[in-house]
Design a protein around this nucleic acid. Sequence first.
DNA 1: TAATTATGTCAAATATATTTAACGTTTCCG
DNA 2: CGGAAACGTTAAATATATTTGACATAATTA
Lengths: 188, 188
Amino acid sequence: MDGLEDNDPGVGQRLRNLRQMHDLSQRELAKRAGVSNAVISLIEQNKSSPSVGMLKKVLAGIPISLADFFSLEQTPRSRIFYRAEELFEIAGGDISYRQVGRDLRGRAMQVLHERYAPGADTGEALLRHDAEEAGVIIRGELEVTVGDQRQLLKEGEAFYFDSRVPHRFRNLADETCEVITACTPPSF
Amino acid sequence: MDGLEDNDPGVGQRLRNLRQMHDLSQRELAKRAGVSNAVISLIEQNKSSPSVGMLKKVLAGIPISLADFFSLEQTPRSRIFYRAEELFEIAGGDISYRQVGRDLRGRAMQVLHERYAPGADTGEALLRHDAEEAGVIIRGELEVTVGDQRQLLKEGEAFYFDSRVPHRFRNLADETCEVITACTPPSF
DNA sequence: TAATTATGTCAAATATATTTAACGTTTCCG
DNA sequence: CGGAAACGTTAAATATATTTGACATAATTA
């Protein structure tokens, strides 16, 4: 049998890209990783499907974690949905922020009960402010983009990030999404 | 050589956990994945380090992506997104604190998904710590006492107070109460 | 109880990954 | 211009992953 048929064709390319980004030759990387140089050549050509043990060793030489490595291939799961929803994008609005407390002066934190109507979008122009931000989805689902990471979060799931990294929220579903968020210090 | 020395010892356990979570036998999963049952047994015992091609096949039977699978082991610091079951459970008993992120070092804020069982009580001895605290009730109702003020809060209602003031939480109803809380700086 | 079916494990056979050692090419100094 | 030294690739040898087919045990059914 071949054994390569079910192989992720991107593994090799991603490894090669990563390696070159880090200005490493196959042999250099191999030495750092403590493996033979041939295996890197073969992996990059998709001529072998490395064991996770081997891949982990190799990535440690870069270094990058398995999770981060595979996150690079994370396909924007449902581009089909995006297209459909992006038609409504112009509206942009339809986000209600219900803030805990009327006056934030002197407060260290801002807590909001947010509602994203179907299609709601904080906008392409990604937000940035000097703070930390976290939230828990309590109903529906919300697409959260932070830097180059994007994730569709559902009820019970959560996020926490540095607000200085550009970010964006979108409700791609056709159910209103509710989120409890906290931000420190308050952003507006 | 062994070849297992550099193996992630968690791969097997994670696979076994996932499989059992989804109520699948080794053979059932094997059939769905289109692989032999033995390989699953061996992987779960860490007696073999699967190739990524093989692991991908196996995970497709669950199904879960490679990225998500390896995200389960990702170190907390770099995490942005959390699945519901990944929230870090801090205390059992009739109050459960499920924290967004495992390691708070370097973080300005602590966000929790809390569950108060019927009758749950943080205790007469009122809590005090040097911080600010806020929350939103998302299910059930909760009696919140802050200083000499007491209030029964219901779904959608919220609180915000200075944690230096003694405070206490009790669930007087016979339904579990869920609250999303945020605290800055983290209190434990 | 006895027969049946499902479970997880393992040994031997087979397929594949990985290493070793070589090759042709390019780059960079002498 | 030579000739090291580094590059990426590959064939054959070796180690390991994966399959096949069987075993023992536990749960289920007649």
